[in-house]
Nucleic acid binder design. Structure first.
Length: 281
DNA sequence: CATCAACCCTGAGAGC
DNA sequence: TGCTCTCAGGGTTGAT
């Protein structure tokens, strides 16, 4: 479940380097080893092998939950989906289970590996990154994403707020964890129709979204289930995976329901639905 | 336009 | 112990 904060954490690690490895920026890709073909969304494996070697990594950025490597001629774009991770390791190390794509680097005895247990992750090599990223909604942490901007967008639809926030074309970067956390912080029920959220509540939601994302980044993301990347935001969840435990605000027991086929955690007291049945016309 | 189900996958956990 | 079953999860696609 890498969401925006987890992808941002990985992005910074690759860009800035760590005790164990230097920055990837400026390095050249020597060769690629594609171990699971379906990981590659485009182009064909043959063209990928032909085009990638020799290209230099000019820049590493994040857009929504996508990692974007700007290369000499192309953009290398990765989506980690459920279980993906990127690791830098010695080029001669044994190849762990679930490695799907390995990029060997020039001039350093290192490789960059895409590990993805569930095989949902995808990689694109393209000269036209907008064809992959173009439908994404605004970046929630950008200054241009204001509370009023959010309110205006909420007004345009009657969709339930939780599935709407998960829709990457509405807003880029939220997944199940941070959506549940943000809705609880803003005291909004996940089924609330978006256009019933007034400017005041919209501002609370805007603030909550940015707060949980910034906290997630500050804690280096959340490590849950079998995916561990060193983050500890999971220790600060207010509702996510806390079914039956007390709400940090009011002490009522957190409930788990399904909303748009997604496991959803919320406080039955803090997050109440507007009285829809009283609405006329 | 909004909602829903199926699909892609694996491993963890439950039930037997 | 070891088998089988169910389920979670993001995003895409197609149906209602």
């Amino acid at each position: 479940m890498p969401e925006l904060p987890e992808v941002e954490t990985i992005c910074r690690l690759l860009r800035q380097g760590s005790n164990n490895h230097p920055t990837l920026t400026g390095m050249r890709i020597r060769s690629a080893d594609l171990l699971w073909e379906r990981t590659l969304a485009e182009p064909t494996p043959l063209e990928f092998q032909h085009r990638l070697p020799g290209q230099q990594i000019l820049d590493i950025n994040r857009r929504g939950k996508f990692l974007v490597f700007r290369l000499t001629d192309d953009h290398l774009i990765l989506h980690l989906r459920m279980s993906g991770d990127l690791v830098i390791e010695p080029q001669e190390a044994p190849i762990p289970a679930h490695h799907r794509l390995i990029l060997y680097l020039q001039g350093e005895p290192l490789r960059l590996a895409f590990n993805d247990t569930r095989k949902f992750g995808r990689v694109w090599l393209t000269a036209h990154p907008n064809q992959v990223l173009g439908r994404l909604g605004p970046e929630p942490l950008e200054p241009s994403f204001t509370a009023d901007h959010l309110y205006q967008r909420l007004q345009r639809t009657r969709r339930q707020i939780k599935p709407l926030l998960l829709d990457q074309s509405f807003l880029a970067g939220l997944g199940n964890i941070y959506t549940d956390e943000a809705l609880h912080l803003a005291k909004i029920h996940p089924l609330t129709p978006a256009n019933l959220i007034n400017p005041e509540r919209a501002e609370q939601l805007w603030s909550a979204i940015r707060h949980v994302l910034q906290e997630g980044i500050r804690r280096n993301g959340a490590s849950i289930d079998w995916v561990y990347r060193g983050g500890d935001f999971q220790n600060y969840f207010r509702v996510y995976q806390r079914t039956g435990q007390p709400c940090p605000e009011c002490g009522a027991l957190i409930e788990r329901t399904l909303v748009g086929q997604r496991g959803t955690h919320c406080c039955p007291v803090c997050q109440s639905l507007p009285a829809l049945n009283l609405r006329k016309e």
